[in-house]
Nucleic acid binder design. Sequence first.
DNA 1: TAATTTCGTTGACCAAAGTCAATAAATGAT
DNA 2: ATCATTTATTGACTTTGGTCAACGAAATTA
Lengths: 187, 187
Amino acid sequence: MQQLRSYFSKLIKLTDQEWADYADCLVKERFPKKSFLLEEGGSCDFIAFVTEGIFRFYHEVEGEEKITAFFFSGDFVTNYRSFLTGGPSEHYIQVLQDATIYKISKKDLHDLYDKHRSIERLGRLIAENLYLMVAKRLDAFHSSSPEERYYELVNRNSKLLQEIPQYMIASYLGIKPETLSRIRARK
Amino acid sequence: MQQLRSYFSKLIKLTDQEWADYADCLVKERFPKKSFLLEEGGSCDFIAFVTEGIFRFYHEVEGEEKITAFFFSGDFVTNYRSFLTGGPSEHYIQVLQDATIYKISKKDLHDLYDKHRSIERLGRLIAENLYLMVAKRLDAFHSSSPEERYYELVNRNSKLLQEIPQYMIASYLGIKPETLSRIRARK
DNA sequence: TAATTTCGTTGACCAAAGTCAATAAATGAT
DNA sequence: ATCATTTATTGACTTTGGTCAACGAAATTA
């Protein structure tokens, strides 16, 4: 949980009171491998901070699983779209490695937004950061080949490569497992 | 400028005073076709609201222009990444149709964030909305074929199709002009 | 440990998008 | 209105990634 406070402190300085109020809203939960944190159809009414484990965020398109993101220790795990819009999730969040998370509900977070300016600001800063992450990834899809996307991933997140099966990485990159296998075989 | 206030009112209720303070920071500017609102290398220290005209947001990759976005009347025009990070822009923002915008500087906006809670919240809501837009687009790149992306665009933004030359739409879709021409010829 | 399923690689072939070039149509400039 | 430039289309060919199938390696389970 100290992990979360230190994450926040990179964005904004919270007083002890503000942090205490935030921490009061956090609920610790454990999830075993293969279980689901969120299933299709349900609306995502929480944001959670991962302190242990790995998740994948995916949806099904014509019987095929398309993985949009992985979440590791130190990330927020949520269907942010569903969280923001309140609409039903078309995505699943599944546990790949036994996980521990600290959840905060949408309602509690909005109450904190009202109660503390700094937390409202924190909400903005987090939204801005999530924007930056997804914008960067869109850029990679728009401007790079699968091979380039793969090597960019190798350079920036080699941890991911070791933890995640290759066919899921292929899905994340938007290509077929056979193609990723061939990219790796080249040169 | 009433256009902007009505845009805001869909997100949050501002008092007359808050709006007045916001409006005081806005600077009207006109840009002729083909001019640049932002060039590569400069950092983007503003967000602007478009009341007239069209812009394209693009960068150069190996001598080729990749268009990431178009901005129309009623949109915000900015390099949001550069605006948030303060880093230099790798992108250009060029005017496609004579334009009028209302700029607010990063400094003024941050002062307003400090001064009015509602405007801080507005900043969060805008960041959240921009996230939703780019996340949706990433999804399209990840899960859809060029043909599907094209027809999705036809359905949801036929205005764009009439205003923008086809080779720019191709770039926006991540394909070559010849390919878009062939997609249109199919069926 | 043995049996079974899942995962990664490879080959032959297919489909889709890219490249290069020619030409036609549309747009802009004089 | 004419000329020049830019944009859109089409054709022939290449490149890249997808499909389907086979096989072996690795991991899971009994």
